[in-house]
């Protein structure tokens, strides 16, 4: 039997190594790659990201990663977990720097965080609690646990999907799931024990 392959996608602007180090700690075999063949062969994808939506949008399109990811996720139904910018890129469009296209795996847009209208400081940086209900990705994690966030933009889905919320001026999407498509706005790889637990859940197929 062929070995299950978890790929961590590297579009060269992310904190990919942090994710890889967390997976090493969890003793999860994985491959950090931007190679299209690797992505075609993988059984599970983690798509981390730090950076601007616009820049990443250009890179995934130019490199062909976008088309391959869409095929794998929509046709072959393999799971994907977007982290931070990786979650935002699951959306249809982004408005950071200038309007650009995401993967369109979950209908919605990524816009400047509404907290800015409440006079709160952006980026939203730091530890904030996440509330969820019937969300298997958070298995064995206490509701209201703190995760580490760092972002100025938020994802606003325009279709009915499962979400977990956090509050910063407004309640907004901290985690999202539509079938095999998952995303977290926070950084599980940087959220100590609760974050490692969540990554482990995903790798073990609990979602």
């Amino acid at each position: 039997m062929q070995k299950k392959l978890i790929t961590v996608i590297d579009v060269n602007i992310g904190n990919v190594n942090s994710v890889s180090k967390a997976l090493n700690y969890l003793k999860v075999d994985h491959k950090v790659t931007n190679n299209l063949d690797d992505i075609l062969e993988s059984d599970k994808i983690i798509f981390p990201g730090v950076g601007s939506f616009y820049e990443a949008s250009k890179r995934i399109k130019a490199s062909g990663i976008k088309d391959v990811l869409k095929k794998r996720v929509l046709e072959d139904k393999i799971p994907i977990l977007g982290i931070c910018l990786g979650m935002q890129l699951l959306a249809t469009t982004g408005e950071e720097v200038k309007k650009s296209e995401g993967l369109d795996l979950i209908k919605g847009k990524v816009a400047i965080h509404r907290a800015s209208k409440e006079g709160l400081r952006l980026p939203h940086i730091g530890w904030n609690d996440v509330t969820f209900k019937d969300f298997k990705l958070f298995d064995s994690i206490k509701n209201g646990s703190c995760f580490y966030f760092v972002h100025s933009y938020e994802m606003i889905p325009s279709e009915e999907v499962k979400v977990a919320y956090t509050n910063y001026g407004v309640d907004y999407v901290a985690a999202i799931q539509k079938d095999n498509i998952l995303g977290v706005q926070f950084h599980p790889e940087k959220s100590q024990h609760v974050g490692l637990r969540l990554l482990k859940n995903y790798c073990e197929g609990k979602f």
């Binding site: 730090v50 950076g51 601007s52 100025s152």
Partner: peptide
Amino acid sequence: VSVFGSQC
């Protein structure tokens, strides 16, 4: 900032 994002 334009390449890595403000948050970085």
